[in-house]
Design a protein around this nucleic acid. Structure first.
Lengths: 234, 234
DNA sequence: ATGATGTTTTTGGTATACCAAAAATCGTTG
DNA sequence: CAACGATTTTTGGTATACCAAAAACATCAT
């Protein structure tokens, strides 16, 4: 994923910090300070910020410091709807476009998830799961579709991560994945749509629940800071 | 559409030039020269180029001048597939989310097209048509969906324009639009899907035909250039 | 004390200068 | 004459300097 260009590196760095919660929502990203902190100039930092803005992770305000985006529940829900639609479309197209190699790779990924489910670290597991879904999009052999799907997957990283760590359910995930796989193997567009609806249909509400829990936790923490509440951050 | 920021203005300018064919595919966009030409500095020009790159209108190459993208027929076709899917999704959601005001606006746009079809300039007409389809996406009240849809609409501007100017068919367009409208008024997701399939289903092949014709024309011209080609590229 | 207003400071927007990598050109040599 | 290589030139990448708008702050008048 890491491009070799400096702004991409910076963007990757910031993205990680944002998605992992190190930079909580509403944190200002001052291009001067952040650039200095990373030992780079404002120009590439600026470009990196634009990349993240395009991804929806930070919001730009005219003549004001960009801030880490705080997506509302509705916004995330809306994005999940689009992600689901894109993935369903991908899977349908994949029914007549996927190569055997694609299906084998999907099998492999699905198997990896099943094997690693109990042993692996949640983060690693999550990466494999993302790879599985990304691969479905790629199996349609439609570059635009895969691109847009990947973009949504990335944008929803944090929300999906929250949801996934909250309710891990091995049986559900594994059986859903295998249902998707058999439908793809059968190249049956209807079955694949059903399977995906099943698997991702609850994703929206899971994510909503996870976000609300997270918001509540964050709010509680904000209201009871340890000791003195100094104004002014940094 | 015009944002008030300088890079956006530059991007708009370049986008027009590219989409209208003033900057044909494979033209290099040298940030120094182009910036000087517009009387701005390299920094905003650079940013503008990145915007267009994100939209797929120009391709960036490491340590090389960006060039105007020359999308292959397959690439455009793939994009049309996604656009169609997004618009169908929008319309389906709009069936239970659209307000009366949304529907009225759609009516108005659809009417404008019918009225202006024979009198208006093809470009104006096309703008209205784009507004109609964009409004469908907006009627779903899903910001992410509308955004992505708009991005595809913009990206396919040139291809759709080629296709539209090539085969103008008043009856077809008008009746299709009214079919879409009635389906939306009835808030009937199935009917709206049928109507959109009808309207946009042939779009893919229309565009393919138009692009092939355009490519042939361009190729013929390139093989018989009129006289001197000055200090150009390639 | 409070609100308005002027000043200072912060910060993003833009221009420009400098650098390094990659082409293209030209000269040299086998 | 061709092919290889050094040099020059082109061009994007990066750093920095300057500017303007907006927010924060302080001061003054009511």
């Amino acid at each position: 994923m890491s491009d070799s260009t400096l702004p991409e590196h910076i963007a990757d760095q910031l993205r990680r910090d944002i998605l992992r919660g190190k930079l909580p929502p509403d944190t200002t990203i001052k291009e001067r300070d952040n650039a200095a902190e990373l030992g780079v100039s404002r120009t590439p930092m600026r470009e990196a910020i634009r990349i993240l803005a395009k991804e929806g992770l930070v919001v730009l305000r005219p003549s004001r410091s960009p801030v880490v985006a705080q997506p509302t529940v509705k916004e995330v829900h809306d994005q999940v709807v689009v992600l689901l639609a894109l993935e369903k479309l991908s899977a349908q197209i994949a029914c007549h476009e996927a190569t055997e190699a694609d299906l084998d790779e999907l099998d492999s990924l699905s198997q990896q998830i099943a094997e690693a489910y109990d042993t692996a670290d949640a983060l690693d597991l999550f990466e494999i799961d993302m790879a599985f879904h990304r691969k479905i999009a790629e199996a349609a052999h439609n570059a635009a579709l895969a691109d847009t799907h990947r973009s949504y997957l990335a944008r929803l990283w944090r929300a999906r991560f929250l949801s996934a760590t909250m309710r891990r359910n091995r049986e559900r995930v594994v059986s859903h994945h295998s249902a998707i796989m058999t439908a793809l193997r059968d190249r049956d567009p209807v079955a694949v749509e059903v399977a995906l609806d099943q698997h991702l249909g609850n994703l929206a509400e899971d994510i909503v629940a996870a976000m609300e829990a997270d918001n509540a936790a964050r709010k509680a923490e904000a209201e009871a800071p340890e000791g003195t509440k100094q104004k002014g951050q940094t």
